[in-house]
Design a protein around this nucleic acid. Structure first.
Lengths: 109, 109
DNA sequence: GGTCTACTACGATGGGCGTCGTACGATAAC
DNA sequence: GTTATCGTACGACGCCCATCGTAGTAGACC
């Protein structure tokens, strides 16, 4: 039966390690207006669910953008009920690319 | 005729104005490994001709990348004989996006 | 003039990306 | 259990982009 085998925890969302963050990948992730807007929104507050952003795209596209941001190492995602909470990986980004996130956020403001 | 008339455009190469620089366009221009390498090379020295970079692409592709960088407002190009000299638009970038170029160059080093 | 060099213009191509619609799974509330 | 909400997965489509080859232009040099 059901070897439903939860061999892995339900929250096994893959995230890149801090040392694996790549500059061009990060820059590419931020070079899309929608994604940059999401990052700016995340920087303003704390954790936010995907649906709390009112971007001009459909849900599927939003899922795509959040995945790009996560795989680039910009955000961290974790499940909470039916929602998925997103937060900025400030510490990792600051350790890997000092000052980068700050200047970009300032330039985007 | 020492008045070389620098204000007169000996070059009809179009460059975007400082206030027209767009953040996502700049980030996209820098999100390509070849272009980032070019910018790093330009930051290291002064003016350099297109051919002085030994990137792993053909000359046509190189021309394409230089145009992307120029249209994004990252570099300035001017003719000199058969060559085209490229230089970083440090001042414009610093005025428009303070600290951005510096942190990216530091992260790319 | 003739030739060489440096770069561009143009066309073609293959792949990646942003976008969407629909179907599906998971959780919460009734 | 039923329903509603939230987000994902998958497939599809169109467009942009990085790459190349070839031909062409402009200046420098003989």
């Amino acid at each position: 039966m059901t070897a439903t085998a939860p061999s892995a925890p339900p929250q096994d969302i893959p995230h890149p390690a801090r040392e694996d963050l790549d500059l061009t990948t990060v820059l590419h992730a931020l070079s899309d207006p929608v994604r940059l807007e999401i990052v700016v929104g995340l920087a303003a507050g704390d954790e936010r669910a995907c649906g709390s952003f009112d971007v001009a795209v459909t849900k599927s596209t939003c899922t795509h953008h959040f995945r790009v941001l996560r795989e680039a190492g910009l955000i961290r995602q974790r499940h909470q009920g039916t929602s998925r909470l997103n937060s900025l990986r400030r510490d990792d980004l600051e350790a890997r690319f000092p000052g980068l996130l700050g200047t970009i956020l300032q330039a985007a403001a």
